[in-house]
Protein backbone atom coordinates (compact mmCIF):
# COMPACT_ATOMS: atom_id res chain seq x y z
CA UNK A 1 0.00 0.00 0.00
CA UNK A 2 1.37 3.43 -0.91
CA UNK A 3 2.08 6.12 1.67
CA UNK A 4 -0.95 8.13 0.59
CA UNK A 5 -3.28 5.17 0.82
CA UNK A 6 -2.69 4.60 4.53
CA UNK A 7 -5.81 5.15 6.64
CA UNK A 8 -4.04 7.68 8.88
CA UNK A 9 -3.14 9.74 5.83
CA UNK A 10 -6.61 9.42 4.35
CA UNK A 11 -8.04 10.71 7.61
CA UNK A 12 -5.57 13.61 7.61
CA UNK A 13 -6.48 14.44 4.02
CA UNK A 14 -10.17 14.36 4.94
CA UNK A 15 -9.67 16.82 7.79
CA UNK A 16 -7.64 19.12 5.53
CA UNK A 17 -10.28 18.99 2.81
CA UNK A 18 -12.96 19.85 5.35
CA UNK A 19 -10.87 22.79 6.51
CA UNK A 20 -10.18 23.91 2.96
CA UNK A 21 -13.77 23.78 1.72
CA UNK A 22 -15.75 24.99 4.73
CA UNK A 23 -16.04 28.67 3.68
CA UNK A 24 -17.41 27.49 0.33
CA UNK A 25 -19.62 24.62 1.43
CA UNK A 26 -20.91 25.80 4.82
CA UNK A 27 -22.78 28.92 3.58
CA UNK A 28 -24.34 26.85 0.82
CA UNK A 29 -25.71 24.49 3.46
CA UNK A 30 -26.81 27.46 5.51
CA UNK A 31 -24.36 26.54 8.25
CA UNK A 32 -22.10 29.63 8.12
CA UNK A 33 -21.61 29.15 11.82
CA UNK A 34 -19.07 26.45 11.04
CA UNK A 35 -16.70 28.86 9.35
CA UNK A 36 -15.80 30.47 12.64
CA UNK A 37 -15.87 27.15 14.48
CA UNK A 38 -13.37 25.57 12.11
CA UNK A 39 -11.25 28.70 12.07
CA UNK A 40 -11.00 28.26 15.82
CA UNK A 41 -10.14 24.56 15.39
CA UNK A 42 -7.33 25.44 13.02
CA UNK A 43 -5.84 27.93 15.47
CA UNK A 44 -5.77 25.22 18.10
CA UNK A 45 -4.24 23.03 15.42
CA UNK A 46 -1.35 25.48 14.98
CA UNK A 47 -0.85 25.63 18.75
CA UNK A 48 -0.88 21.82 18.93
CA UNK A 49 1.60 21.53 16.06
CA UNK A 50 3.92 23.87 17.93
CA UNK A 51 3.60 21.85 21.13
CA UNK A 52 4.24 18.63 19.22
CA UNK A 53 7.53 20.07 18.03
CA UNK A 54 8.94 20.07 21.57
CA UNK A 55 6.77 17.39 23.16
CA UNK A 56 6.46 14.83 20.37
CA UNK A 57 9.87 15.26 18.79
CA UNK A 58 11.83 16.67 21.69
CA UNK A 59 10.31 14.79 24.62
CA UNK A 60 9.71 18.04 26.51
CA UNK A 61 6.30 17.86 28.16
CA UNK A 62 5.46 21.51 28.63
CA UNK A 63 2.40 21.96 30.78
CA UNK A 64 2.33 25.68 30.16
CA UNK A 65 2.29 25.90 26.41
CA UNK A 66 -1.01 27.83 26.19
CA UNK A 67 0.75 30.79 27.77
CA UNK A 68 2.18 31.64 24.34
CA UNK A 69 -1.33 31.71 22.90
CA UNK A 70 -2.11 34.29 25.56
CA UNK A 71 1.05 36.28 25.00
CA UNK A 72 0.53 36.41 21.24
CA UNK A 73 -3.08 37.43 21.71
CA UNK A 74 -2.46 39.98 24.46
CA UNK A 75 0.32 41.63 22.50
CA UNK A 76 -2.17 42.29 19.71
CA UNK A 77 -4.91 43.27 22.17
CA UNK A 78 -2.79 45.66 24.22
CA UNK A 79 -1.27 47.32 21.15
CA UNK A 80 -4.76 47.77 19.68
CA UNK A 81 -5.94 49.18 23.00
CA UNK A 82 -3.26 51.84 22.68
CA UNK A 83 -4.19 52.55 19.10
CA UNK A 84 -1.45 50.59 17.36
CA UNK A 85 -3.30 48.47 14.84
CA UNK A 86 -0.72 47.96 12.10
CA UNK A 87 -0.07 44.27 11.55
CA UNK A 88 3.49 45.14 10.55
CA UNK A 89 4.10 46.24 14.14
CA UNK A 90 1.70 43.94 15.96
CA UNK A 91 2.65 40.63 14.43
CA UNK A 92 6.44 40.79 14.64
CA UNK A 93 6.09 42.08 18.18
CA UNK A 94 3.64 39.32 19.16
CA UNK A 95 5.99 36.68 17.77
CA UNK A 96 9.03 38.37 19.27
CA UNK A 97 7.55 38.68 22.76
CA UNK A 98 6.40 35.05 22.64
CA UNK A 99 9.91 34.00 21.66
CA UNK A 100 11.49 36.12 24.37
CA UNK A 101 9.24 34.72 27.09
CA UNK A 102 9.93 31.20 25.76
CA UNK A 103 13.66 31.95 25.92
CA UNK A 104 13.48 32.97 29.58
CA UNK A 105 11.07 30.22 30.61
CA UNK A 106 12.98 27.62 28.62
CA UNK A 107 16.33 28.69 30.04
CA UNK A 108 14.93 28.10 33.53
CA UNK A 109 12.80 25.01 33.00
CA UNK A 110 15.21 23.09 30.76
CA UNK A 111 17.62 22.79 33.65
CA UNK A 112 15.19 20.28 35.11
CA UNK A 113 13.80 16.99 33.86
CA UNK A 114 10.70 14.84 34.05
CA UNK A 115 8.08 15.83 36.59
CA UNK A 116 10.04 18.90 37.63
CA UNK A 117 10.05 20.17 34.08
CA UNK A 118 6.29 19.72 33.87
CA UNK A 119 5.74 21.52 37.16
CA UNK A 120 8.05 24.43 36.36
CA UNK A 121 6.53 25.08 32.95
CA UNK A 122 3.12 25.03 34.63
CA UNK A 123 4.21 27.40 37.38
CA UNK A 124 5.84 29.88 35.01
CA UNK A 125 2.78 29.90 32.76
CA UNK A 126 0.51 30.48 35.77
CA UNK A 127 2.62 33.53 36.63
CA UNK A 128 1.68 35.15 33.33
CA UNK A 129 -1.90 33.99 33.74
CA UNK A 130 -2.22 35.74 37.09
CA UNK A 131 -0.46 38.77 35.68
CA UNK A 132 -3.19 39.04 33.05
CA UNK A 133 -5.91 38.49 35.66
CA UNK A 134 -4.53 41.33 37.74
CA UNK A 135 -4.09 43.73 34.83
CA UNK A 136 -7.16 45.90 35.53
CA UNK A 137 -6.34 48.31 32.78
CA UNK A 138 -6.69 45.51 30.25
CA UNK A 139 -9.89 44.05 31.62
CA UNK A 140 -8.60 41.64 34.30
CA UNK A 141 -10.42 38.34 34.06
CA UNK A 142 -13.26 39.88 32.03
CA UNK A 143 -10.84 40.09 29.13
CA UNK A 144 -10.17 42.83 26.64
CA UNK A 145 -12.22 43.57 23.56
CA UNK A 146 -10.27 44.47 20.46
CA UNK A 147 -11.99 47.20 18.51
CA UNK A 148 -10.00 46.92 15.31
CA UNK A 149 -8.32 43.92 13.72
CA UNK A 150 -4.71 44.02 12.58
CA UNK A 151 -4.40 46.27 9.54
CA UNK A 152 -2.05 45.55 6.68
CA UNK A 153 -2.55 48.94 5.05
CA UNK A 154 -3.43 47.47 1.67
CA UNK A 155 -6.85 47.47 0.05
CA UNK A 156 -6.87 43.88 -1.20
CA UNK A 157 -6.15 42.18 2.11
CA UNK A 158 -8.29 42.78 5.17
CA UNK A 159 -8.92 40.46 8.10
CA UNK A 160 -12.37 42.02 8.45
CA UNK A 161 -13.34 39.87 5.52
CA UNK A 162 -14.42 36.53 6.97
CA UNK A 163 -13.09 34.44 4.11
CA UNK A 164 -9.74 36.23 4.12
CA UNK A 165 -9.49 35.70 7.86
CA UNK A 166 -10.31 32.03 7.48
CA UNK A 167 -7.85 31.30 4.72
CA UNK A 168 -5.12 33.28 6.42
CA UNK A 169 -5.46 30.92 9.36
CA UNK A 170 -5.57 27.94 7.00
CA UNK A 171 -2.34 29.01 5.33
CA UNK A 172 -0.65 29.47 8.69
CA UNK A 173 -1.79 26.00 9.71
CA UNK A 174 -0.25 24.45 6.60
CA UNK A 175 2.86 26.56 7.07
CA UNK A 176 3.27 25.40 10.66
CA UNK A 177 3.19 21.77 9.54
CA UNK A 178 5.58 22.48 6.69
CA UNK A 179 8.03 24.26 8.97
CA UNK A 180 7.82 21.38 11.46
CA UNK A 181 8.52 18.91 8.70
CA UNK A 182 11.64 20.76 7.58
CA UNK A 183 12.86 21.29 11.14
CA UNK A 184 12.35 17.72 12.25
CA UNK A 185 14.33 16.30 9.35
CA UNK A 186 17.14 18.82 9.45
CA UNK A 187 20.38 18.49 11.39
CA UNK A 188 18.79 20.48 14.16
CA UNK A 189 15.77 18.19 14.29
CA UNK A 190 17.96 15.09 14.27
CA UNK A 191 19.74 16.28 17.40
CA UNK A 192 16.38 17.07 19.00
CA UNK A 193 14.93 13.63 18.26
CA UNK A 194 18.13 11.89 19.31
CA UNK A 195 18.21 13.80 22.59
CA UNK A 196 14.65 12.69 23.25
CA UNK A 197 15.52 9.02 22.95
CA UNK A 198 18.98 9.06 24.55
CA UNK A 199 20.27 12.32 25.94
CA UNK A 200 23.50 10.97 27.48
CA UNK A 201 24.50 9.35 24.22
CA UNK A 202 24.10 12.63 22.38
CA UNK A 203 26.35 14.26 24.97
CA UNK A 204 28.90 11.51 24.55
CA UNK A 205 29.20 12.05 20.81
CA UNK A 206 30.11 15.63 21.55
CA UNK A 207 26.85 17.57 21.43
CA UNK A 208 25.63 19.59 24.40
CA UNK A 209 21.85 19.23 24.10
CA UNK A 210 20.73 22.16 26.25
CA UNK A 211 21.00 24.87 23.62
CA UNK A 212 19.26 22.74 21.02
CA UNK A 213 16.37 22.12 23.36
CA UNK A 214 16.25 25.79 24.25
CA UNK A 215 16.16 26.76 20.58
CA UNK A 216 13.34 24.29 19.94
CA UNK A 217 11.48 25.66 22.94
CA UNK A 218 11.77 29.20 21.55
CA UNK A 219 10.67 28.18 18.05
CA UNK A 220 7.64 26.38 19.48
CA UNK A 221 6.82 29.42 21.62
CA UNK A 222 6.93 31.73 18.62
CA UNK A 223 4.78 29.38 16.56
CA UNK A 224 2.22 29.23 19.33
CA UNK A 225 2.43 33.02 19.58
CA UNK A 226 1.26 33.14 15.95
CA UNK A 227 -1.75 31.01 16.91
CA UNK A 228 -2.41 33.55 19.66
CA UNK A 229 -2.26 36.60 17.44
CA UNK A 230 -4.59 34.88 14.97
CA UNK A 231 -7.00 34.03 17.75
CA UNK A 232 -7.05 37.64 18.96
CA UNK A 233 -7.96 38.71 15.44
CA UNK A 234 -10.57 36.02 14.94
CA UNK A 235 -12.40 36.61 18.20
CA UNK A 236 -11.64 40.35 18.51
CA UNK A 237 -11.23 39.52 22.14
CA UNK A 238 -8.56 38.26 24.52
CA UNK A 239 -8.94 36.96 28.04
CA UNK A 240 -6.80 35.23 30.67
CA UNK A 241 -8.82 32.08 30.09
CA UNK A 242 -6.91 31.52 26.81
CA UNK A 243 -3.79 30.71 28.78
CA UNK A 244 -5.14 29.01 31.86
CA UNK A 245 -3.57 25.67 32.65
CA UNK A 246 -6.71 23.93 31.40
CA UNK A 247 -5.86 25.11 27.92
CA UNK A 248 -2.30 23.81 28.26
CA UNK A 249 -3.70 20.47 29.33
CA UNK A 250 -6.07 20.39 26.38
CA UNK A 251 -3.19 21.10 24.03
CA UNK A 252 -1.31 18.12 25.42
CA UNK A 253 -4.40 15.99 24.89
CA UNK A 254 -4.83 17.14 21.32
CA UNK A 255 -1.27 16.14 20.53
CA UNK A 256 -1.58 12.77 22.27
CA UNK A 257 -4.97 12.13 20.70
CA UNK A 258 -3.75 12.83 17.18
CA UNK A 259 -0.46 11.04 17.58
CA UNK A 260 2.71 12.39 19.11
CA UNK A 261 5.67 12.92 16.82
CA UNK A 262 3.60 12.63 13.67
CA UNK A 263 3.46 15.70 11.46
CA UNK A 264 -0.30 16.02 11.04
CA UNK A 265 -1.27 14.25 14.26
CA UNK A 266 -1.75 17.47 16.22
CA UNK A 267 -4.00 18.84 13.46
CA UNK A 268 -6.29 15.82 13.40
CA UNK A 269 -6.03 15.61 17.18
CA UNK A 270 -7.22 19.18 17.59
CA UNK A 271 -10.02 18.54 15.10
CA UNK A 272 -11.30 15.39 16.80
CA UNK A 273 -10.88 16.80 20.30
CA UNK A 274 -12.78 20.01 19.56
CA UNK A 275 -15.38 18.38 17.33
CA UNK A 276 -16.19 15.82 20.00
CA UNK A 277 -16.46 18.44 22.71
CA UNK A 278 -18.78 20.48 20.46
CA UNK A 279 -21.00 17.49 19.75
CA UNK A 280 -21.03 16.18 23.31
CA UNK A 281 -21.67 19.65 24.73
CA UNK A 282 -24.71 19.84 22.44
CA UNK A 283 -26.08 16.61 23.86
CA UNK A 284 -25.78 17.25 27.57
CA UNK A 285 -24.35 19.83 29.93
CA UNK A 286 -22.60 17.00 31.76
CA UNK A 287 -20.56 16.18 28.68
CA UNK A 288 -17.29 16.07 30.58
CA UNK A 289 -18.48 12.84 32.19
CA UNK A 290 -18.37 11.20 28.77
CA UNK A 291 -15.40 13.11 27.40
CA UNK A 292 -13.09 12.44 30.33
CA UNK A 293 -13.31 8.63 30.25
CA UNK A 294 -13.04 8.74 26.46
CA UNK A 295 -9.70 10.51 26.71
CA UNK A 296 -8.51 8.03 29.32
CA UNK A 297 -9.43 5.15 27.02
CA UNK A 298 -7.56 6.74 24.13
CA UNK A 299 -4.42 7.02 26.21
CA UNK A 300 -4.69 3.43 27.44
CA UNK A 301 -5.78 1.64 24.28
CA UNK A 302 -4.70 3.82 21.41
CA UNK A 303 -1.06 4.53 22.14
CA UNK A 304 0.17 6.62 19.28
CA UNK A 305 -3.24 8.30 19.09
CA UNK A 306 -5.41 8.33 16.00
CA UNK A 307 -2.39 8.06 13.73
CA UNK A 308 -1.08 5.07 15.66
CA UNK A 309 -4.47 3.39 15.76
CA UNK A 310 -5.07 3.74 12.04
CA UNK A 311 -1.54 2.71 11.17
CA UNK A 312 -1.68 -0.47 13.26
CA UNK A 313 -5.03 -1.42 11.78
CA UNK A 314 -3.55 -0.97 8.33
CA UNK A 315 -0.48 -3.06 9.12
CA UNK A 316 -2.66 -5.94 10.28
CA UNK A 317 -4.70 -6.01 7.09
Amino acid sequence: MGELGKPANIFTALVLVIFALTPIVAPALDESFYVIVFARFMIWGIAAVSLNLIMGYGGLISFGHAVYLGIGAYTVGILAFHGVTSAWIQWPLAIGVSGLVALVFGAISLRTKGVYFIMITLALAQMIYFLSVSAERYGSDDGLSILARSEFGVSFFSLNDKTTMYYTIFVFLLASVFVSWRLVNSRFGTVMRAAKSNDTRVQSIGVGTYRYRLTAFVIAGMMCGIAGLLQANLESFVSPDMMSWHRSGELIFMVVLGGMSTLFGPVTGAFVFLMLSEILAGLTIHWHIIFGPFLVLVVIFARGGIAGLLTRRADRD
Binding site: R182, S186, R187, F188, T190, V191, R193, A194, V207, Y212
Partner: peptide, 26 residues
Amino acid sequence: DFTVLENVMLSVQARQGHSFRFWKPV
Protein backbone atom coordinates in the same frame (compact mmCIF):
# COMPACT_ATOMS: atom_id res chain seq x y z
CA ASP B 1 14.41 4.05 16.58
CA PHE B 2 16.92 5.55 14.16
CA THR B 3 18.26 3.49 11.30
CA VAL B 4 21.81 2.18 11.56
CA LEU B 5 22.91 4.81 9.07
CA GLU B 6 21.18 7.63 10.98
CA ASN B 7 22.93 6.55 14.16
CA VAL B 8 26.33 7.06 12.60
CA MET B 9 25.28 10.12 10.60
CA LEU B 10 24.49 11.87 13.85
CA SER B 11 28.07 11.36 15.01
CA VAL B 12 29.41 12.60 11.70
CA GLN B 13 27.17 15.62 12.08
CA ALA B 14 28.46 16.23 15.59
CA ARG B 15 32.01 15.96 14.30
CA GLN B 16 31.40 18.57 11.60
CA GLY B 17 30.53 21.23 14.15
CA HIS B 18 27.31 22.73 15.40
CA SER B 19 23.94 21.44 14.24
CA PHE B 20 22.10 24.74 14.00
CA ARG B 21 20.95 24.01 10.49
CA PHE B 22 17.22 24.07 10.35
CA TRP B 23 16.08 23.53 6.81
CA LYS B 24 17.94 20.97 4.72
CA PRO B 25 16.85 17.36 5.24
CA VAL B 26 19.72 15.19 6.48
